[in-house]
Design a protein around this nucleic acid. Sequence first.
DNA 1: AATGAATGAGACTTCATTCAT
DNA 2: TATGAATGAAGTCTCATTCAT
Lengths: 222, 222, 222, 222
Amino acid sequence: MTLTDKHDDCSCPVLGTVTRWARRKDARPGEILDAALDLFVAKGFAATKMNDIAAAAGVTAGTIYRYYDGKEEMLRAIIRDGIGAKLDEGEQLITQFKGTAPELLAMVIRTWWSLIGATRLSGLPKLIISEANNFPELAELHREVVVRRGEAMIAKALQYGVDRGEFRPMPIESTVKVVVAPVLMAMLWKHAPACETGEFNVDEYLEQVIQTLVFGLSLRSA
Amino acid sequence: MTLTDKHDDCSCPVLGTVTRWARRKDARPGEILDAALDLFVAKGFAATKMNDIAAAAGVTAGTIYRYYDGKEEMLRAIIRDGIGAKLDEGEQLITQFKGTAPELLAMVIRTWWSLIGATRLSGLPKLIISEANNFPELAELHREVVVRRGEAMIAKALQYGVDRGEFRPMPIESTVKVVVAPVLMAMLWKHAPACETGEFNVDEYLEQVIQTLVFGLSLRSA
Amino acid sequence: MTLTDKHDDCSCPVLGTVTRWARRKDARPGEILDAALDLFVAKGFAATKMNDIAAAAGVTAGTIYRYYDGKEEMLRAIIRDGIGAKLDEGEQLITQFKGTAPELLAMVIRTWWSLIGATRLSGLPKLIISEANNFPELAELHREVVVRRGEAMIAKALQYGVDRGEFRPMPIESTVKVVVAPVLMAMLWKHAPACETGEFNVDEYLEQVIQTLVFGLSLRSA
Amino acid sequence: MTLTDKHDDCSCPVLGTVTRWARRKDARPGEILDAALDLFVAKGFAATKMNDIAAAAGVTAGTIYRYYDGKEEMLRAIIRDGIGAKLDEGEQLITQFKGTAPELLAMVIRTWWSLIGATRLSGLPKLIISEANNFPELAELHREVVVRRGEAMIAKALQYGVDRGEFRPMPIESTVKVVVAPVLMAMLWKHAPACETGEFNVDEYLEQVIQTLVFGLSLRSA
DNA sequence: AATGAATGAGACTTCATTCAT
DNA sequence: TATGAATGAAGTCTCATTCAT
């Protein structure tokens, strides 16, 4: 499996420190793609050099071409293999859920973070936002594979609350984005640390997000 | 005045009938910087070619160097001249404000959008998030000039509500980001349209943001 | 008359300090050519920018083209107008000379220095040596107009000594160069001060040159 | 070893049959630097194009950058690696010398020519004189590494003659330059053939230089 | 006659990609 | 299979020259 999502070394690797596993033969492509993802996220697609990716993956430039047809092909692979699998887990959780809507919303956000936000994949939103205009077909792919499914999940959770009378009536489509935005920004801040002041306490932030959203969306009795 | 913020076109002005070689000397720098901002935001710094900027500004590449020392210098100028002036207006509004905290919060967000979000400057967050790691000194500048002041403004508004007993007690620093995130994401989505599905109704979205935040932050009497 | 040879401000003007006279209309071309010569000598033809010449001449770049067809044309003018007139004076001196050969040789060298070496024209050898290969037709011109006449003068002086029995028999052509070399080097050193150590005392040097040459060329009686 | 000093060709070797892409890795830097030296000397630094150097070295322009950081860096390398080694040989010769001062002076000049004047390195004086003003730090380097040592050598030889009563008393510093000048000019003429008339018979010239200097510097008994 | 903004050709340099080893 | 030297296309930047004012 490529694009490994180990919780470990993902602390905004602007430079170097891409850990390499035991050199199993079949790990090569994954290591290369991981290195590419890290660097694409950190520096952007155009500013990332094949030599840097190679060095970060512990190979030389020529080797990359045994596994991928070129730089753009790597980006394609990253987007393609990206988040899909995680969404499966998420959808299952929501479908099986039985508690209150606030509990569901909180769970969705927390799970989202632990499955994606805390992993290397957390860089994808930054990468896609930065490069979407340059690779429309990849943006399209991402929209179909990730955005639509992700928003559908959130919409389902919101509708669940509205149906149960726990959340106020709302224009679902817009409100989905209200829920999504704070989590996405957390991922973006994580990978552009130079954009915020002081230390960013993600956990405290996410709890405030949850609390604010839950109460902000709840139906007020009066 | 550079980085003009006309509400109208943010759509790469190809500049139809230009009085070639007229006494445009004083207008040129602004036009060039506007073109550069648009393209940096749309395609990223590295992927933007000087020729593209020149064409968008209605000149040839060589001309740009009469006004700016190079590509990076233009980026510097963009960040430097960027949003500062707008923050002055914003700060004044908050200081003079006399109404309720929810009204204040709503006003801040709406003003933020009309002064920045609806203008060409709305691209800056995308640009800075994308390039911060590549130009640490610019990120630092932006942090000092924009982020710190912007967050201070929001913090002031929140504190205003807490002091008046309208907002619940809250960890201000984290909650500031909860307020900021949805507006920033609106700017990002605006400039990476390929990242969201369907039509994005910004006004409806912002109203939902305001409503959710206001109620989500309000002190519940019971 | 262009290429003025004032003894004054000619102290290796690597940068600036090109004095400008009262702005008589007809002085323009000369001032420009003087500035060009100084800069060509100091920095080389290719490394000299038209803007620098213009600035040194107290005009703007466009103005130069009223007087000269371009950069190369200026170089041509410099070589063409160069040293010719001075050689007339020199030839006359030698022809009229009546004293001993050593006296003649000493006079030639001293006159050479005062008429050319001490003036702005002293830069020409450096310029021509540096650029000869890039402008063969100019080298040819210089050869015809300056070198041949100059060497003929020295040859005449040497022959004068040999005929009078004061100088030893010698291969005139080669020995001419032995006489010429130390004076040319003095001019080169003057314009490439970075090439020699300490202070270069030209007068002491030239006296040693004269003394060494005179005795080195004299017929020894024994 | 770079800056090869084969006595044979100093004539821009277009390099006939090159084993393209063979294991030339270790030879390349030297070939490139040789080509660069030849062209810098022939045309000047600014007028020499990287493409020309590359072509002369049998590679493409891009290849040069695998070995040198840029054009200026090549110039630096040329000056740095230049003549140093040759001076070692020269110094040893002088120190060990046991004969008469005239013999020593003649030997120094002849050795100088065979070790440097007859090789590709003979172009360095022209290069340095031409570019010294544009690269002060390189001129400084050359002064320290070459000029000072070279002049010290000549001074030693002259002092040797004075001490032995073979040479007349003299201001050593100035007289050193009198000795140096004719040899330097020979090198310059060699690389600016367009600057002298007819054929330049270097050997005959140097013999005249030696003879003139030796007698010109000798102590006259009477 | 002079200006200096603008041009456009051409230089230096970078880097994704190839391919002999 | 991996390497890394080499390529060549493409981008940034410079500057001699032009020309409307």
